[in-house]
Design a protein around this nucleic acid. Structure first.
Length: 140
DNA sequence: GCCAACGTTGGC
DNA sequence: GCCAACGTTGGC
């Protein structure tokens, strides 16, 4: 089991929209960055991820699960781009802000901190547990 | 709204 | 294959 982080903006794709898709989930389409795509290729069904909102909220707000492994991105004919499907699993009791993440020494190596522009990124098991704890959630 | 960091493109 | 120019992202 691996852990990931998906970055979105409320104005583009909100947590409410993601949750409204229910167990059917939705394609994480539109990624046009090789590093991000390569991480998606490594994802397996059942892996968990955080849903992070950049720009306005700047906080981890929920947990998602991979429900389909990498496949062609339906929003382009360009064969280079692939995406996975994810579904919302639960909302964190308390959103974990970027400020909190940056100020916590246990999270200083997070990709969110060291490479803030990467939109799909890996999260270590330790980082996963810390953020779940800060969010008032059991780390499962 | 600004700007630093980063990725991509294209000329050589 | 290098690198300058350009575009985009995202925190502040």
């Amino acid at each position: 089991m691996n852990f990931w982080l998906f970055k979105s903006e409320t104005t583009t794709w909100s947590w409410d929209q993601q949750r409204a898709k229910g167990d059917a989930g939705e394609e994480w389409s539109g990624v046009r960055n090789y590093q991000a795509r390569n991480f998606m290729r490594q994802m397996r069904i059942g892996d968990l991820g955080f849903f992070y909102l950049s720009q306005k909220e700047k906080a981890v707000v929920g947990v998602v699960q991979i429900i389909a492994e990498a496949h062609p991105d339906s929003t382009t004919d360009d064969e280079r781009w692939e995406c996975v499907d994810i579904k919302a699993v639960r909302t964190l009791a308390t959103p974990v802000s970027l400020q909190q993440i940056k100020s916590d020494p246990r999270l200083s190596e997070m990709v969110l901190v060291t490479n803030s522009r990467l939109s799909v990124q890996p999260v270590t098991e330790d980082e996963w547990a810390v953020i779940c704890s800060l969010g008032g959630d059991a780390p499962s």
